[in-house]
């Protein structure tokens, strides 16, 4: 029984195994490798080895971009989580029938293309758009102020894009939470916000961790949102990687940036996730 099974197992596993090694693992090593190669002037990759690409990254030129990427991503994550917690709580406490429809309403925008969402915001924040007009009408902004092409507009669209991703894992955790515990805490004299912070929040911890990862990592690697919503002074890591790849055709520099991103961010995440899923 065991021997033929083993053979069948190999046969069935080989297609995905080989595919993912060729098109996922191997390419990842290619960027790590090319990051240590010198660039030629005509956009190629030279012989030999160098640390120049990494020296460049740690020189002061890149510091503002790396810091901005980090801070915009952290802000996005914090805002998404702070909004997603009450929404997840609200969804989990709804009666089952209404909950299904509300959940569908939360998920639906996730199915619209990211570019469409970005473009919708660009229209709204446009100098002739209705948010700008309303704000001018209310006297909140100057008529010649611009709402587009800055870090704020990037942040709004990042939150808009990743909020459903934050709500879902938090809702999934809240749905399994025993709300009787909140009543118990109240009976023991806890105020409702105290019970919320000290019983509910620890109760949905795993959902929170998933939500943080699911928002933070794509935010760090965002390209289209800062490219369309941001200006030249609000570039993020993704823009730099794309610019080095397509505009300057400096593939080793782009690889070094991508490798840094992959190693620094992905290693802890992968180790954490793999250990959790193998348990």
């Amino acid at each position: 029984m065991n021997k033929p099974n083993r053979y069948v197992e190999w046969l069935l596993s080989v297609p995905t195994y080989v595919w993912l090694i060729v098109f996922f693992v191997f390419p990842t090593f290619i960027i790590l490798w090319i990051g240590f190669k010198p660039a030629t002037l005509n956009g190629g990759i030279d012989e030999g080895w160098t640390l120049q690409n990494y020296r460049e990254i740690f020189s002061s030129n890149y510091t503002p971009i790396l810091l901005r990427t980090l801070s915009i991503s952290i802000w996005t994550t914090v805002i998404c989580i702070l909004i997603a917690i009450p929404v997840g709580y609200w969804l989990a406490r709804l009666p089952a029938r209404i909950r299904y429809w509300m959940l569908l309403l939360v998920i639906l925008p996730f199915w619209t293309n990211m570019l469409i969402r970005i473009f919708a915001w660009k229209t709204i924040l446009h100098p002739e758009g209705f948010i700008k007009n309303s704000l001018v009408f209310l006297g909140i902004v100057e008529p010649n102020a611009t709402l587009l092409y800055n870090e704020g507009s990037i942040l709004i669209v990042l939150v808009y894009t990743y909020l459903p991703f934050a709500i879902l894992p938090i809702y999934a955790a809240a749905e399994k939470f025993d709300f009787g515990l909140l009543d118990a805490a109240a009976d023991l004299g806890a105020r409702s916000w105290e019970a919320f912070l000290r019983v509910f929040i620890p109760g949905i911890k795993l959902g929170l961790i998933t939500a943080v990862l699911i928002v933070f990592i794509p935010a760090l690697g965002s390209y289209a949102i800062p490219d369309i919503m941001g200006g030249s002074t609000s570039e993020m890591l993704g823009n730099k990687i794309a610019q080095r790849t397509f505009t300057d055709r400096n593939l080793p520099q782009a690889s070094a940036l991508a490798s840094l991103f992959a190693v620094v961010v992905m290693t802890p995440v992968l180790v954490y996730q793999i250990r959790r899923s193998l348990q």
């Binding site: 098109f23 996922f24 191997f26 794509p218 690697g221 593939l251 961010v265």
Partner: peptide
């Protein structure tokens, strides 16, 4: 096999894009 199938899910699109391009 599990790790191999799981990893692309958490790998940022941008990195997958540039690594495939270089491949």
């Amino acid at each position: 096999h599990y790790v191999l199938v799981y990893a692309p899910l958490v790998f940022p699109d941008l990195l997958m894009g540039i690594s495939l391009l270089l491949l």
